[in-house]
Design a protein around this nucleic acid. Structure first.
Lengths: 144, 144
DNA sequence: CTACAAGCTCAAGTCGACTTGAGGTCAAGA
DNA sequence: TCTTGACCTCAAGTCGACTTGAGCTTGTAG
């Protein structure tokens, strides 16, 4: 079982070293030891980081991700809270799909002003009235 | 055609007055005039705010929303950029669906540690390798 | 006419998730 | 042994989207 230093982890996951340290500080991950000052991680760190990346890409805060599946893999959230989160995700998905349709329409519709296009307004009316039971957040997911 | 003051707009849209002023300052919307100091808005503001809310709920920055459909309704973005954004949304949707499945599994799986559950790891492996062509951001979408 | 609630402006603050920078440490190669 | 480069810590900074607070203005009800 090979131990990885932080540069190997960043290489294999694309997660910045500063972010990894940040996650450790917040208790989302733990290093298995040190060589001198340098952190050493077990191979499971790769899955854990994939999970953190996925969770935060989906709009959960680090604290929420931590609650969903902590470093030990045991969720700190109740079953009900997890189901609520899954429902939130479904609503978020609906919204995204809705916006995607709207954007497609904008790209294709010849009307000079979309607000005057009845189809656009109809699409617009469909969305945005449901409440989320837990917070969902959004931040930069990726670039170019 | 009735004019609305800012409190009526917040009432009908749920968007805070401070946010509305912020959007105006950033050029996403414009008020049609003033009564004394107080801003007056035309009824189209309701659709415009719905659009802004939807767009930013979907992870776009205010600048991006502004580009997608400015206050005049004419998109400042090329058709290609719009299609790219729509594709990004599709990828984001995939990720969200993926995480939802993972969370459902976490809620239902009896394994003490998810990292040891083969199904969990299989689900985990499926996601998180696609690139977005434009930035997608995430922020607070709603609460409770 | 006067008071007041509601809005206004402008500057500063907040929050989350990192990033950056200064200055320090240390394992390993020459 | 000496040097170096990779890492370290800790404090401070950044970014976006607002929110908050202080102090000012004004249409409208009494």
């Amino acid at each position: 079982m090979k131990l990885l230093d932080i540069s190997e982890v960043t290489q294999q996951t694309g997660v910045a070293a500063s972010a990894i340290r940040h996650y450790e500080e917040k208790g989302l991950i733990t290093s298995v030891g040190r060589r001198g000052l340098k952190r050493l991680f077990g191979p499971e760190i790769l899955d854990q980081l994939a999970l953190i990346t996925l969770g935060s890409a989906a709009g959960f805060s680090l604290d929420e991700v931590k609650g969903m599946f902590g470093p030990d893999g045991r969720p700190a959230l109740s079953r009900q809270m997890l189901f609520d989160k899954a429902d939130d995700l479904d609503r978020q998905i609906e919204q995204l799909a809705h916006l995607r349709d709207l954007i497609h329409h904008v790209a294709e519709c010849p009307a000079p002003s979309h607000m005057e296009c009845p189809k656009f307004r109809r699409l617009l009316r469909l969305g945005g009235k449901k409440k989320l039971t837990t917070q969902a957040r959004k931040k930069r997911v990726g670039k170019l």
